[in-house]
Design a protein around this nucleic acid. Sequence first.
DNA 1: GGTGAAAGGTCTTCAAG
DNA 2: CTTGAAGACCTTTCACC
Lengths: 158, 158
Amino acid sequence: MNSSFQLDSMDWKIVDALQHDARQSLSALGKRIGLSQPAISERIRKLEDAGVIEGYGARLNLQKLGYGLQAMIRLRSDHARLPQALKQCEAMPEVLEVLRITGEDCLLIRCVIPRPEALQTVVDALAAHGNLTTSLVLSTPIARPVARLDTAEPSARQ
Amino acid sequence: MNSSFQLDSMDWKIVDALQHDARQSLSALGKRIGLSQPAISERIRKLEDAGVIEGYGARLNLQKLGYGLQAMIRLRSDHARLPQALKQCEAMPEVLEVLRITGEDCLLIRCVIPRPEALQTVVDALAAHGNLTTSLVLSTPIARPVARLDTAEPSARQ
DNA sequence: GGTGAAAGGTCTTCAAG
DNA sequence: CTTGAAGACCTTTCACC
């Protein structure tokens, strides 16, 4: 099933708490949101089984890992050359994320760069597959986890 | 300070493992990478204290959470109107990430959208702060955690 | 859906090598 | 860095409401 999962307000509290700290104990989580520990355990299991929660990961500081620069590169190419461009992206560990998007540009590529010189090799490699528009990331003013939009109950479907 | 932290190959193995599964037990992690559990514990503590590891979060499936659409919006504005634009972004929970970038566009805004109609309200709100270029995200061909670039060569080239 | 208790596993902290 | 062990904490499982 690729459709959405029905989360009630308790599920969202659990999801919010796990986004903030995925390593906290289930008993601490239970106290925080007012549910018994076995109940938390069961709900998390269901969220995992349903694929809502895909896993747990560490939030890392790219700067401290030695990646002082981040770049967003838009690639404008024709449809036939896309597979080749993606293959090139896969081969470069600097590329963390590739989005296939609508509009004049086909791909939006996020990559990390240890040193300014390293950006050149990435750009050179990608330029073979289309026209590039490269932007350096100066800062990240907003970065936050996904939240429930409707404060109303999810049963309020149109 | 804000500079990089010296990670040896063991530290990188720990970071890689924690990116893959942050909830695994430290003893399991130790067995996987060949280090005793107290040693793992101590290294993780140092990585956390140094700010390399900023926290732990859940990886969520946006589709299953009810966000079928994702959009990347570029906003081109003048410098004086940027604070106002950011304030607007902060006020919209659909906006997950805002990047300040170089180039003709000032901001790159990632947002999630539950239904197509919801994109309109986001776009309308942002359009007051500058010219928008909106792209829908069709797919995410690549999304992977950060890894250590090979010390020898920055990246494999075809 | 919820509680509470027992059994087994895990983390931290310590010693000593 | 390692092993080993003690005590505290956590998770799972179960019976039960």
